[in-house]
């Protein structure tokens, strides 16, 4: 069952390459939250219940509802145009993300470690690099945040792989998740709209040498 969820997770990554609307991105991020909820539930059922509840709450409440809602709110409030505006054509994005997935797959195939749940590793790496790819290939800063959230989801999958033995790490990961995303989004909500004109919200590129 976990395998199916993780495969669906990977498909959602491919979809990120195809999608060109911010709304679809938000939907994907929210959807990934649901999948992670499922994965966490199946994988971590053995750890102590308090921890489990915390993790489940984080995935379902935070990743699936709060953050996507927040993102929507920011887009509305700052009147950000709804297109992702990639530097590269979307077609190339799909190709690159496919290559990323294949690459992570091949990489993990070279590891001979019986303890490793390979599929977690593949999915996590794919999410990680897809997130990075989205950050470098999209023009808007809100899409950078979304790329970061995808990376976070990848990290979550990775922490699942070690979660049974070291639940503390999963918790720290969650801490990171909440901390970083609340902070990133918080600046967006409160400050960017006040200080900058609408047009500037989309690109911050004045500081350079």
């Amino acid at each position: 069952m976990t395998n199916i969820l993780l495969i669906i997770f990977t498909i959602s990554l491919i979809y990120l390459g195809v999608a060109n609307r911010l709304k679809s991105y938000i939907a994907v991020i929210s959807f990934q939250g649901i999948i992670l909820f499922g994965v966490a539930f199946i994988e971590l059922i053995e750890i102590n219940w308090l921890n489990l509840v915390l993790i489940l709450l984080e995935t379902i409440v935070f990743k699936t509802i709060v953050i996507p809602y927040f993102l929507n709110y920011i887009i509305k409030k700052n009147k950000i145009t709804r297109e992702a505006e990639p530097f590269l054509p979307d077609f190339l994005s799909v190709v690159i993300i496919t290559v990323i997935i294949l690459g992570s797959f091949l990489l993990s195939n070279t590891i001979n470690d019986p303890k490793l749940k390979k599929i977690f590793f593949v999915v996590a790496l794919s999410a990680l690099f897809t997130g990075l790819y989205i950050i470098v290939s999209r023009r808007k800063i809100i899409t950078h945040v979304m790329g970061f959230l995808v990376i976070e989801n990848g990290v979550f999958v990775l922490s699942m792989a070690v979660g049974n033995e070291m639940p503390m790490l999963v918790n720290i990961g969650i801490l990171l998740d909440i901390f970083a995303s609340v902070f990133l989004l918080g600046i967006f909500v409160n400050k960017i709209g006040d200080v900058l004109k609408e047009g500037d919200v989309e690109h911050l590129s004045k500081l350079k040498d």
Binding site: N20, R21, K23, S24, T81, R82, E83
Partner: peptide, 10 residues
């Protein structure tokens, strides 16, 4: 509707 907006915007 995203598919509509994708056609109209820009």
């Amino acid at each position: 509707l995203p598919s509509v907006l994708a056609r109209l915007e820009k």
